[in-house]
Design a protein around this nucleic acid. Structure first.
Lengths: 104, 104
DNA sequence: AAAAGAACTTTGTAACGCAAAGTTAACTGA
DNA sequence: TCAGTTAACTTTGCGTTACAAAGTTCTTTT
């Protein structure tokens, strides 16, 4: 059990972080407002979660123009994908324990 | 996606809470020190997580004696089991989305 | 009598989560 | 042309959380 818990990454504890990463691992370059809408977060709140993930190099920011209008999009980095995958694998292991497993 | 995230219970966000509940749903009445050891938490830290879960009626406390020595054990309540199960089901849905799913 | 263990509580601190308001730069409609 | 709007933040402020470490009470062990 100890091994499992320590393999969960604190950066992904929070449900909104799980949400952000889940979106970004299956969709390349999602823009700010789409994320905001999908997760029903306020501007500031979303920005701070994104910044935290960016500081750990789990997501990357790309600024481009749509026509002449700037647009910010976010994507998961290779490191982010790897870390998140490991997190999900660990969660899955926990699911199994919590459903049928033994205490060990 | 919005639906999924909102179905995750904030009380179970933290990995240590996941650990406590996972242990308690498959083992009836686990004592303090066993939990502490299984999760490698300090006394105070474990106590505060337990208290938070107890305040929400997700776990119950039972004090008994082993010989003449008092022992505190913890168990998941029916409400705790139900809420945790719902949480795990939601996590599982998220796992699927994050592995193959679409953005919706 | 002294040391140790169980199960906390208290204290203190740093980080976190959040909403709301402020900001900057661009774009749009009248 | 200029008031209003949108994008994408940053800042502010506040209540909560996570945590370690130390203190507490009661009891057992030596």
């Amino acid at each position: 059990m100890k091994d499992i818990i320590t393999h969960l990454n604190p950066a992904f504890d929070h449900r909104n972080r799980l949400g952000i990463m889940s979106i970004l691992v299956v969709n390349d370059w999602v823009d700010y407002n789409t994320l905001k809408e999908l997760l029903s977060l306020t501007d500031g709140n979303l920005a701070s979660h994104l910044k935290a993930l960016e500081l750990q190099d789990f997501i990357a920011v790309r600024k481009k123009f749509v026509g002449r209008k700037p647009q910010t999009t976010y994507g998961a980095t290779a490191a982010g994908r790897a870390a998140f995958k490991a997190h999900l694998d660990t969660l899955e292991a926990l699911l199994h324990i919590a459903r049928e497993g033994e205490l060990d």
